[in-house]
C-alpha cells in the first residue's frame, strides 16, 4: 500500500511539474499568473524571494549586439536578464567612439532610465549620434 502511495505521489509530482513546463518559451507567465507547482507555490515563494534578495541577485547582460542600420548609424542592442524577483530600475549611458577610439561628443550620451521586471528578460536599443561611430562603451548606475 505504501509503495503504491509513493508511486502515485511521484507520478503526480512529475505530472504537475510537466504541466508547469509546457508552454511556449517566448511567452513569460509570471508568478501568481501561471499555475502553482511543487517548486513555485504560496508556501515556497517567500523563502525563494528572501534567498534571492539575500544573495543579491540583479541584472545580467547576456548579449550586446551592434549593427549598422539603413541610414548608416550604428545601433547597439543590449539583451539582459533580471535574476532578481524585484523590478530593477537603473540608469545607463552609452558613449560612442570613432575609428581612432576617440570619444564622440554627443547630446544623446546622457543617463537614461531603464527597468526590468523580476525574473524577466529585457532589451535596450541605442542609436549612435553619427555614422562616424564604430564602437561604444556603456555604463550603468543605480536609479536614484
Amino acid at each position: 500500500m505504501k509503495t503504491i502511495t509513493n508511486i502515485l505521489l511521484f507520478i503526480m509530482a512529475v505530472v504537475i511539474t510537466g504541466c508547469f513546463e509546457q508552454h511556449d518559451s517566448r511567452i513569460h507567465l509570471r508568478e501568481e499568473v501561471r499555475s502553482d507547482s511543487l517548486v513555485d507555490n504560496i508556501v515556497i515563494r517567500p523563502v525563494v524571494h528572501a534567498f534571492s534578495a539575500l544573495i543579491g541577485e540583479g541584472i545580467e547582460i547576456t548579449q550586446a549586439l551592434t549593427r549598422r542600420n539603413d541610414a548608416g548609424f550604428l545601433e547597439l542592442h543590449v539583451n539582459g536578464y533580471n535574476r532578481s524577483y524585484q523590478t530593477k530600475r537603473f540608469r545607463y549611458r552609452v558613449e560612442w567612439l570613432d575609428e581612432d577610439g576617440l570619444l564622440i561628443e554627443s547630446k544623446t550620451s546622457v543617463w537614461l532610465p531603464a527597468s526590468a521586471m523580476g525574473k524577466s528578460p529585457f532589451s535596450l536599443k541605442v542609436v549612435a549620434p553619427t555614422p562616424k561611430a564604430v564602437n561604444f562603451r556603456m555604463d550603468t548606475r543605480k536609479w536614484e
Binding site: 541610414a71 548609424f73 544623446t108 550620451s109 546622457v110 537614461l112 532610465p113 542609436v127 549612435a128 549620434p129
Partner: peptide, 14 residues
C-alpha cells in the same frame, strides 16, 4: 533625456 530619446528615435527611423 527627452532630447536624447527623440534624437535617437529620429536618426534610427531613417
Amino acid at each position: 533625456r527627452a532630447a536624447s530619446e527623440l534624437i535617437q528615435s529620429m536618426l534610427g527611423s531613417g
